[in-house]
Design a binder for these strands. Structure first.
Length: 552
RNA sequence: GCUCCCAUCGUCUAGUGGCCUAGGACGUGGCCCUCUCAAGGCCGAAACACGGGUUCGAGUCCCGUUGGGAGCGCCA
């Protein structure tokens, strides 16, 4: 490894503290952020001379330039006391977990740093964008508790501004008209690739200086081929490439509409966005956007690309195959706090901590601990978190969340009362999500219950007849309907049946009273069902067994 | 094809050259508890992709290989 020495400007210390200097190891000062993949923190570099590691294949001069570039791109911003971030989804479907996580990271970063978070709807794809989708995105964010300070702004509202920028670029000679047709482009590209070329735009129209009268044309950005389009990504570290690696990209279509790359850059600039936190699928697009920033004489924002969430196959998520819609998770009965926690912990970590409240995420979130590799979303972990938060909720809050699911079971309105609270308490540690909880509460919710065939077959057998019949009068005669009195009643009944094992009585009763073979403890279960109903259900079970005996 | 990126248990991850005999969590196996189902407790199996280098010392730095991903559009 060759090292280059350089002296940093004295005022660099003004940027604050940074890496530890270790002159013997040649990884210090500039080198830390110039090339080391490790220094991705929001912290700064120390203002002392240091050595620069030279990446392989890069000359000393180039290495030096890269380092300077990285320094300028990252630190040239005057001040970052006023943080502004944005989440810019395109409303072409529901809010999916990838987008939700990007929103969450933006939001958490902004809230932590005390900045402003703005929401911008990228609706320039008129064909696929719908107002319903837009609403779904907003609903999803609200449900998750991710709030924004401005917006939703719509990209289409900026159309005039985009057009003006392109005209301006054209007039300054920083962009030019291109009359190449798609077919020509395609064939030349193929030929280039066949000749071991890179298949980038060959610059045919670059020096033609076509005027407005050239007929159907697109507008391309005139990229300085000697420039370096690099930046220091807050997640990926030093990123980007030389301009010679990319061709002059189109910024305006032949129908006069601007391209996405132009629109985002202009919008981010206009909105004063300081930190662009977005999915890593934009990582390779960033150099071109950097070129646009340059053409606009603008400072570039700080970029942080967060790795994609991948499907089980390791590939990108498929909306069809994978469960990705936030609204679907909501409908499936997952609590928003579980969802947020799950998403936050996907790609980000804070030591060994697994459980984070919304406040803790805001308090602790930092880009430094966002990983660089794609992550699979594990549904099992969501279930665990979901149950964790179900266990944690107050009775009131739990009821509010589960209410619609309960009503879905009963088919009518459900009001909260003491008995229901007790039931839900029993169900907390037995439910992974609210749908499950509501279903398990059915035996309390509905007067009429259906006995599962399998459970009946297994437990409502002739042997259970005597115990059940013996229990009925005991329960009926109970003055106090409490856990203690019920326990005593069951024990006495067992004893009177020749020390019958509790299970032999409890299981049939459970099936009789709940219709299923799994429920909370038998005393709790019977207690919560109530005396009258419990007795009636056991009677019914007795009839059932008798009928079964009669049938043979 | 070209460009860029990534790589620790099945999964999410801790890890900033010695605290690593690689830690935690989910999941998973066993045991305990037990009227069922859970919850809980205890114990276990389970990973640094491979190969070179640098170094007294490498999961950690460098190179290569392999594997994976993204981008290369008049989509966003």
């Amino acid at each position: 490894m060759i090292s280059i020495r350089m002296t940093l400007p004295r005022d660099l210390t003004a940027f604050g503290y940074g890496s530890v200097l270790d002159p013997y190891k040649r990884r210090c000062g500039l080198a830390k952020f110039g090339f080391s993949l490790k220094n991705r923190s929001l912290g700064w570099v120390t203002g002392v001379a240091g050595g620069i590691a030279q990446p392989p294949g890069m000359g000393q001069e180039a290495a030096l330039n890269h380092a300077k570039d990285a320094w300028q791109l990252r630190y040239a911003r005057p001040s970052m006391t006023n943080i502004r971030t944005r989440f810019a989804p395109s409303p072409t479907g529901f809010l999916h977990i990838g987008g939700a996580r990007t929103a969450l990271f933006n939001w958490a970063l902004t809230r932590r740093l005390g900045g402003e978070f703005v929401l911008r709807i990228e609706d320039t794809d008129l064909e696929r964008s719908t107002r319903e989708s837009e609403q779904a995105v907003l609903d999803g964010m609200r449900w998750l508790g991710i709030d924004w300070d401005e917006g939703p702004l719509r990209q289409t509202d900026n159309a005039e501004r985009h057009a003006a920028v392109v005209e301006d670029l054209l007039s300054k000679g920083r962009a030019y008209r291109c009359v190449c047709t798609r077919e020509e482009l395609e064939s030349r590209r193929e030929a280039d690739i066949a000749a071991n070329g890179k298949g980038i735009y060959d610059g045919t129209c670059r020096e033609k200086n076509y005027g407005d009268d050239c007929g159907t044309h697109t507008v391309r950005l005139r990229i300085d081929r000697d420039s370096s389009l690099r930046w220091d990504d807050l997640v990926f570290g030093p990123s980007g490439q030389d301009a010679s690696e990319i061709g002059d990209g189109i910024i305006r279509r032949s129908d006069g509409t601007p391209l996405y790359h132009l629109a985002v850059v202009v919008d981010d600039l206009d909105m004063g966005i300081t930190h662009v936190v977005r999915g890593a699928d934009h990582h390779s697009n960033t150099p071109f956007q950097l070129a646009i920033y340059r053409a606009l004489d603008a400072d570039i924002p700080i970029f942080a690309h967060v790795p994609l969430i991948v499907a089980e196959s390791g590939r990108k998520l498929s909306k069809r195959k994978d469960p990705v819609s936030i609204q679907q998770f909501e409908a499936d009965g997952y609590l928003p706090e579980a969802m947020i926690n799950w998403l936050a912990r996907l790609g980000w970590s804070h030591g060994d901590q697994e459980v984070f409240s919304r406040d803790e995420i805001v308090e602790l979130f930092d880009l430094t601990h966002v990983g660089r590799s794609g992550a699979q979303a594990d549904p099992a972990k969501l279930e665990w978190l979901s149950q964790h938060y179900i266990k944690e909720r107050s009775s009131k809050a739990l009821f509010e969340a589960v209410k619609p699911f309960l009503e879905n079971v009963t088919g009518g309105p459900v009001e909260r009362d003491d008995r229901l609270d007790r039931t839900l308490d029993l169900l907390r540690e037995r439910s992974n999500h609210l749908v499950e909880m509501a279903e398990k509460a059915r035996f309390v919710l509905c007067d009429e219950i259906e006995i599962e065939a399998g459970a009946a077959k297994k437990h409502l057998r002739p042997v259970a007849l005597e115990p059940l019949e013996a229990l009925i009068p005991v329960l009926k005669g109970l003055d106090a309907w409490t856990l203690e009195s019920l326990e005593a009643a069951f024990e006495a009944t067992c004893k009177s049946l020749g020390d019958l094992k509790l299970g032999k009585l409890a299981q049939p009763v459970r099936v009789a009273v709940t219709g299923t073979s799994a429920s909370p403890g038998i005393f709790e279960t019977v207690e919560v069902v109530g005396q009258e109903l419990a007795v009636a259900r056991i009677r019914k079970a007795v009839e059932l067994i008798k009928a079964r005996i009669a049938e043979g």
